[in-house]
Amino acid sequence: MFGLFGSMWRPLRHRRRGVVELKWLSARTYTTKWYPQGIDFGTWQGRRTLAVSWFRRDKTGQHLASRVTFIDLERSRHLDVALTIEGDDGELAPAQIHAGGLAWFGDRLFVAATGQGIWEFDMSESRRIRGAAARRMVGARGRGFGAVALAVVRTRVHPVPLRCSFLGRMFDTHGTSLPRVLIGEYRGDKLGRIGEFTIPGHVEGSFVSVDQSSPQIARMQGAVQWGDRRFISQSRGLQPGALWDGDGATPQRSDVPLPIGCEDLALDPEGRMLWSLGEHPWRRVVRGIPFDRLGL
């Protein structure tokens, strides 16, 4: 696993109307080169940790790189890790994907590579890269960016019969993580699907479909499940995002707002929080909603 959390900046943690918010105190709050998308919760070095995925693109919309930021929730510090692919010659190349969602199971990190299935990365080992190689892993040019970077390597690509725009974990009512995920499709209309899948084994196997539904919600961005309660995020342009709550077939819109430009969802059993994040420049925030506001 990686060493101590390093940081050039700290996200500001504060409470606002009963929620916990982290705000980026750097160019990340407004850059149009990198966009935050996926989120999940885990424990790292004994600390409660959030993982946030980002993708980098150029002015034409071409994807250049992707990374995950691990945030120590107690100290509000962070560590960036580049997502990479290893070639036959051992050289690393950036994972040029729209990293739309995360599911974190111990040393296994599953990433929704929108339109390209689910990509799996091994977090048990990291590689420290420097200079031009580091800049290449983060899709940057010139000498002033990415002098040193940490990277994790893709181990497998898992084909899934859905567009794989996002994915989220499932828990029982006691907060135990189940070996299943929800994988869903973002669409502008109401025809997007969400499927429940078992995760593959460490060495072999594939995502196996358990159930599939179309909840009739346009612009779905994330989904997680606690017992028989399924939560779905819906983006609404420059208005606060909507949270849908209920069983998989007939969710109802909640009165709990999500961030503007909301994306993925994550459940935090230890802190009893539902986490989401906003992607729009100048409105980027990572927000934790206490379970008691959700009736959990």
Rank of each mutant, 00 (worst) to 15 (best):
L12P: 14
R13Q: 11
R13H: 12
H14D: 03
H14F: 12
R15W: 03
R15M: 08
R16P: 00
R17F: 11
R17H: 14
G18Q: 12
G18R: 04
V20Q: 08
V20R: 11
E21C: 07
E21M: 11
L22D: 11
L22M: 08
K23R: 15
K23A: 06
K23F: 01
W24L: 04
W24C: 01
W24F: 14
L25C: 09
S26G: 06
S26E: 12
A27W: 08
R28M: 05
R28A: 09
T29A: 02
Y30N: 10
Y30C: 03
T31M: 11
T32Y: 02
K33S: 01
K33Y: 13
K33R: 05
W34G: 00
W34S: 02
W34V: 00
W34L: 06
Y35V: 00
P36I: 04
P36D: 02
Q37E: 13
G38M: 03
I39H: 15
D40P: 06
D40C: 05
D40S: 07
D40R: 02
F41V: 01
G42D: 04
G42R: 05
G42C: 08
G42P: 14
T43C: 14
W44G: 04
W44R: 11
G46N: 05
G46R: 10
G46T: 00
G46P: 14
R47D: 08
R48C: 02
R48N: 14
R48Q: 15
T49P: 08
T49N: 10
T49C: 14
L50W: 10
L50V: 00
L50G: 11
V52C: 10
S53R: 07
W54R: 08
W54C: 06
W54T: 07
F55W: 13
R56Q: 02
R56F: 02
R57G: 04
R57K: 15
D58I: 04
K59Q: 14
T60F: 12
G61H: 06
Q62P: 03
Q62K: 11
H63S: 01
L64A: 03
A65W: 12
A65G: 12
S66E: 02
S66P: 15
